[in-house]
Amino acid sequence: MNLFRLFGDMSHLASILLLLYKIQTTRSVRGLSFKTQALYVTVFVTRYLDLFYDYVSLYNSVMKTFFITSSCYVLYLMKKKYRPTNDPSIDTFRVEYLLGPCVLLSLIFNYRFTFAEILWSFSIFLESVAILPQLFMLQRTGEAEAITTHYLAALGAYRALYIPNWIYRYWMEDQVDPIAVTAGIVQTALYVDFFYVYFTKVLQGQRFELPA
């Protein structure tokens, strides 16, 4: 564990708390992509199956359990509790286009051709693109509540912080995980546009609005 990773994980934790805070205070899931949230549940469930057969640390197990339960809870909030505030008509990204290539990639790139390792690989590839339905929705509506953009910024910061973590591990621990690194760089790159608007508008006190 190094500081980059710790701050990355804390940022991930903060992003989920911000998401829950947004839903609870506005009593609405408006502006959130159900598809992205459903993809995150898929990511966590397929990656953290090792909770049942591989113990890393208490920290690791607690975080994994939190990510699975909180992401499932968000789906419940979107589909049941605050269902009337969810608008599927603007959540139109075709997730088949993400799932198919991720299945294919995980069959080609994995560390062992076993069910668990292929699922792990799949979850890494899927996580790298899971935010796309959300960013696509943002692009479509052209604006977002500030709290939603803070959620996305924390999520993007988590991914960005994992990059120096990998550089650190490469030099200090002689460890490198090519699948995670490649997917992680792609994932972080997807946030570049968002971060540009976030820094130049939201953090200057303006509304998050995309040029028409």
Partner: peptide, 10 residues
């Protein structure tokens, strides 16, 4: 550098 696949990250 050695490849991991150890999956100790989240």
């Amino acid at each position: 550098a050695k490849e991991t696949g150890l999956h100790d990250e989240l």
